[in-house]
Deep mutational scan, measured.
Amino acid sequence: MSGIALSRLAQERKAWRKDHPFGFVAVPTKNPDGTMNLMNWECAIPGKKGTPWEGGLFKLRMLFKDDYPSSPPKCKFEPPLFHPNVYPSGTVCLSILEEDKDWRPAITIKQILLGIQELLNEPNIQDPAQAEAYTIYCQNRVEYEKRVRAQAKKFAPS
């Protein structure tokens, strides 16, 4: 494992614990031996107030490669969400998460999670990743928002 990646992720964890947006979660997972795995984080993004996503808490896994922060983490909703920019596998399609697009090593975990929260309610229809959600979003916004509200209710924190 890269010392650069681990040191950056340790800084990220410290900064997150000191200050993070209300309702968001970002925690490194534990290895079988109980030690912390900084390369694999369990996160959760709350649906934004005043949107059909409100009330939901959407679980996301963030996986970092050894060359982080040169390369972005892979962000994957578990379980996958109904959304035009979420692949059926759950992987998020967002330009700041793509090395050859808008990724920059200075982007923080907090910025990534806030960017994904923004994307939930403002899909990028130029870059669809899920045919069904994309089609319904474009053709029947009322039905799309109904499905999103049902999903938010399903993923409401207990």
Rank of each mutant, 00 (worst) to 15 (best):
E54N: 04
R13V: 01
Y87P: 00
P21E: 01
S2T: 11
I116A: 15
D127P: 00
T91Y: 10
E145Y: 12
F155N: 15
V142H: 12
N37L: 09
F64Q: 06
P79L: 12
G47Q: 06
P79K: 14
E118T: 09
W41M: 07
W53L: 00
K110L: 07
T51V: 01
W103Y: 15
D33A: 02
K76E: 15
V25R: 13
I107M: 12
R104V: 05
L81A: 06
L113P: 07
I136L: 10
A5N: 12
F58E: 05
S70L: 14
E54M: 12
N31H: 11
K110Y: 05
I107L: 13
T51M: 02
P105K: 00
L120P: 03
V148G: 05
F58V: 09
G55W: 09
P123M: 01
A156K: 05
P52Q: 11
C93T: 00
R149F: 09
F82N: 03
V148P: 05
A133C: 09
K154R: 12
H83K: 05
D33Y: 03
P52A: 14
D127W: 00
A5T: 08
K74W: 02
N40M: 12
D102W: 10
P69Q: 01
E99C: 13
N140Q: 14
K110A: 04
R104H: 01
H20M: 00
N85E: 06
W53K: 04
P128D: 04
N124I: 04
G115L: 00
L114S: 12
G23N: 11
A10K: 15
I116C: 15
S70V: 09
C75T: 11
A133F: 06
T29C: 13
H20I: 05
Q151S: 06
E78M: 14
D66R: 07
L113T: 10
M62V: 12
A131C: 13
V25L: 10
T29F: 15
L114A: 13
I109M: 11
K101W: 08
A44N: 08
K48M: 10
Q139E: 13
I136K: 08
H83R: 02
A156I: 08
K74I: 15
E12T: 01
E12H: 05
Q117D: 08
K146V: 13
V86P: 01
A26Q: 04
P123K: 01
P32R: 15
T91S: 15
G50L: 10
K49E: 12
Y134A: 10
R147W: 08
